[in-house]
C-alpha cells in the first residue's frame, strides 16, 4: 500500500462541482535510466488511476513513464448523492492501492 494524499470536500451541495486532487508516493521509474554501474534500472510505474463514485467510475487515467514521480492528478466531480469516493491506483504488476473518502451531499439550495 502506497502513501496517498487526497483533497476532496467532505460535504457538498447536490450539483456542486468539487475539485479533487490526488498525490501518491511512487518513483515512476522510467526504465530509461542507468545506475552508477551503467546497468539499466528496470521500469516500475503506476499504469492506471481510477476514481469511483458510489461504485461507478467517474474518472480514469492511463499513465506512462512520462508522468512525473509521485503522480499528482487533479480533476473535478459533480456532487450527486451521499456516499463513497474511491481512489484506486494500479501498478504495472497489478498491485493496487485504494483510498476511500466519505461524502455527504446536501440537497441543492
Amino acid at each position: 500500500m502506497l502513501k496517498a494524499r487526497i483533497s476532496v470536500p467532505a460535504r457538498a451541495r447536490q450539483g456542486e462541482i468539487m475539485a479533487v486532487k490526488t498525490l501518491i508516493s511512487h518513483p515512476m521509474e522510467t526504465g530509461f535510466r542507468r545506475n552508477s554501474l551503467g546497468q539499466a534500472i528496470p521500469r516500475d510505474i503506476l499504469t492506471r488511476f481510477e476514481c469511483r463514485y458510489n461504485e461507478k467510475p467517474v474518472f480514469t487515467a492511463t499513465l506512462h513513464p512520462a508522468v512525473a514521480a509521485n503522480p499528482f492528478i487533479a480533476f473535478h466531480v459533480r456532487a450527486q448523492d451521499s456516499g463513497k469516493l474511491e481512489f484506486i491506483w494500479t501498478d504495472q504488476d497489478d498491485q493496487v492501492t485504494r483510498v476511500t473518502r466519505e461524502l455527504t451531499v446536501d440537497p441543492a439550495a
Binding site: A61, A66, V67, F72, A74, F75, H76, R78
Partner: peptide, 29 residues
C-alpha cells in the same frame, strides 16, 4: 510529448459526471 523517449504521457477518461473538463498533472519533459 513528441521529443520524449516515449511520446505517450497520459490519457484521462472523463464524462459529464465530472462537471468540468479540466485536469492537472505533472509530467516529465
Amino acid at each position: 510529448a513528441q521529443a520524449n523517449p516515449l511520446p505517450d504521457v497520459a490519457r484521462f477518461d472523463l464524462s459529464h459526471a465530472n462537471g468540468l473538463a479540466e485536469v492537472e498533472t505533472r509530467i516529465r519533459v
